[in-house]
């Protein structure tokens, strides 16, 4: 098992390098660079900049160099922990990430937790009470959850909360805690705000996960070992949870790898609508402004998290299922 984990961690290095090259190329693909967008924005505001100044800045930022030179400069920094300068924010990318990344991770993880806490029990109920009224009800709610766009759901929830309480449920803290130092009350306040983005971002995932859990468990319930377990004299509860449930969890666990990035991208619009200081809004801004070091770094970090998520789900799978453990 240890060898497997080490092996997988070593493989992460070429994977990430490849992802970094690919994402850098894609970010560089649109015509023009940061200066083009910057200058055209200035022109819209009626200001202008001499061609000499533009070329000077371009040279200072290194934008006039060929793409592979830019890439190597950047990736050399990344390896040393320096993600370069954000052109638009005029600050080190690392600073920007440090301020926002924890919120992104917190929201993604709480959405993930929300997804599993809600979806697994409902999936189990639906499978064991197939075609019951509640099963149909959960199916209906699940399909609505799948079909409704996140940002629309966020807007509806905002309106609804405003109607009921008169408060705009925006951001992660109430005004009095916004700049306050960490305290117990501030954490409580955070949780009071956190549920809404977790709910909104997690809805589609929950609906999908209910379907997966229900289908897996239905498959397992019809297998011979379930009747064998029952024929031993075990209680229905034990028959369900010791055997088919354990095995039905496998595909659920293996989804952790791709659920994380899906939540990340689901978060973009929701964070903008709900005014949450995650990475998502600056990511969108960096792409529109062609702030390539910032954009590249964010893609790189998301990719790293995804690869780590996949590794975690592989380790969990190996732990859950001896067949996988022995084949590695």
């Amino acid at each position: 098992m240890l060898r497997f984990i080490l092996h997988r961690i070593l493989w992460m290095i070429p994977t990430l390098l490849f992802i970094s090259i690919l994402s850098f190329i894609i970010i560089e693909a649109p015509p023009g660079d940061f200066m083009t967008t910057y200058v055209s924005r200035l022109r819209e505001q009626g200001e202008d900049m001499g061609q000499v100044t533009i070329d000077g800045l371009r040279a200072r930022y290194g934008l006039d160099q060929p793409i592979y030179v830019k890439y190597f400069k950047w990736i050399r920094g990344v390896v040393q922990g320096d993600f370069g300068q954000s052109l638009e924010w005029q600050r080190p990318v690392a600073d920007l990430l440090r301020a926002r990344l924890p919120w992104s991770i917190l929201i993604s993880l709480s959405s993930l937790l929300f997804v599993y806490l809600i979806a697994i029990p409902i999936g189990v109920y639906s499978a064991t009470h197939l075609y019951s009224k509640l099963d149909y009800f959960f199916n209906l709610v699940g399909f609505i959850g799948l079909a409704i766009p996140n940002f629309l759901f966020a807007l509806i929830m905002l309106w609804f909360i405003f109607q009921r309480t008169g408060n705009a449920a925006i951001g992660l803290f109430s005004r009095e805690f916004l700049m306050a130092p960490w305290s117990f009350a501030r954490v409580i306040d955070l949780f009071k705000h956190l549920w809404l983005p977790a709910l909104v971002i997690g809805t589609a995932g929950t609906a999908g996960m209910i379907r997966i859990m229900r289908a897996n468990l239905l498959d397992e319930l019809s297998k011979a070992y379930v009747m064998v377990a029952r024929a031993k004299g075990l209680s229905e509860r034990k028959v369900l949870y010791k055997y088919p449930f354990r095995i039905a969890l496998n595909p659920v666990v293996s989804t952790i790898g791709w659920t994380l990035p899906a939540l990340f991208s689901g978060e973009v619009l929701v964070s903008i609508v709900l005014g949450i200081p995650t990475i998502a809004p600056i990511f969108l801004g960096s792409l529109m402004g062609q702030d390539m070091f910032l954009a590249g770094s964010i893609v790189f970090i998301m990719a790293t998290l995804t690869v780590i998520g996949t590794l975690i789900s592989d380790i969990l799978l190996g732990w859950l299922d001896p067949r996988i453990r022995e084949s590695i």
Partner: peptide, 16 residues
């Protein structure tokens, strides 16, 4: 009363 089923392949849980 005990019972033996015909499928030895699926009569045991594979993860225990």
């Amino acid at each position: 009363i005990s019972i033996i089923f015909q499928e030895p392949m699926t009569s045991f849980s594979m993860v225990h």
